[in-house]
Amino acid sequence: MNACPDPEASVRRQPLLLSRYAEALFWLARYMERVENLARVLDVTDTFVRHGVDQSGWRSVIQINADEERFSALYGRANAETVARFYLAERENPNSILSSLFAARENARTLRPLIPIEMWNQINVFYNRVRQFSKEDCVPSRVSGLCVYLKEQCQTHAGIIDGTFYRDQGWAFYCIGKYVERGDQTSRLVDIKYHTLLPSPEDVGSALDVSQWHALLRAASGFQAYRRINPSHMTPASVAGFLLLNDSFPRSVTRCVRQIEIYLGQLSSGYGLRGAHAAQEQLDELRAALMDQSIQQILSRGLHEFLDWVQLQFIGLQDAIAQSFWRRPEQSQQQSQSGGP
């Protein structure tokens, strides 16, 4: 009997990871990260709209997720109640927290042979609780409480995976998924908010103006860090610069890109996965664009154009990863790319 040929045997490192599992890990991380980001945005919007400082708030949540059409078809008018319900509990909205959690749980179900039991249990219980969110739960007086719960559960998930997940290549795929989503979300947040919030001449320097930039920073959980490094001023440019380029802020686009770089590096040199090279090349360009420009340069060349390009780079990156590690020619199934155009 002849042994089956195994050309990859010499470069392959144990333990192996099924392509399908790599894909599910990447998406599980994206969906969980998406839930947390959306919960932050909803919570902050709720606070600031209620205090009357950010009237554009609810509409801009819809814009961030590029859901204008779907929203108006289902609900018509955007107000605190309809937007909250649309994003918390609407099954017909693929970008809702409920839908993201459903997708996260189905990916986790696929991964159950691999992931720690505690990780599945928490996602399972979490989803089943959110499944029960009713119309009455989504009223303005309860939104903030629900968002706190959602954030806590996402952080519990992060803690469980940090404390129990075996550090093999699966971990790298998970982390890449998480930082792709986070970087993408921050870039969307800045893109939409920056332009809605750009001061009109009569607002400059008013209390209203500053509060809105507070809201933006809080939505990205960056308010305290921003204040620590900018105690004396708050300008639109410095806020955008902080959220996009700051190297130490865990939700900045630059920080996310650096993390992705580290984990792609682990895949290629640590685990000998040649498939990572294409993604690394794709990422190089994005990293260079973020490293080599100041926020002033970006603003002068057009922030919106730049962020559009950043989002396309993330899509390209994800494509390169999928192509190298899990996509097959006959495969058509695609998980949901966040939001929009």
Partner: peptide
């Protein structure tokens, strides 16, 4: 070639 492989991130593994 009559050998069974699984699709992994490192290519086909027996």
């Amino acid at each position: 070639n009559h050998c069974v492989y699984m699709r992994t991130t490192a290519g086909l593994a027996p």
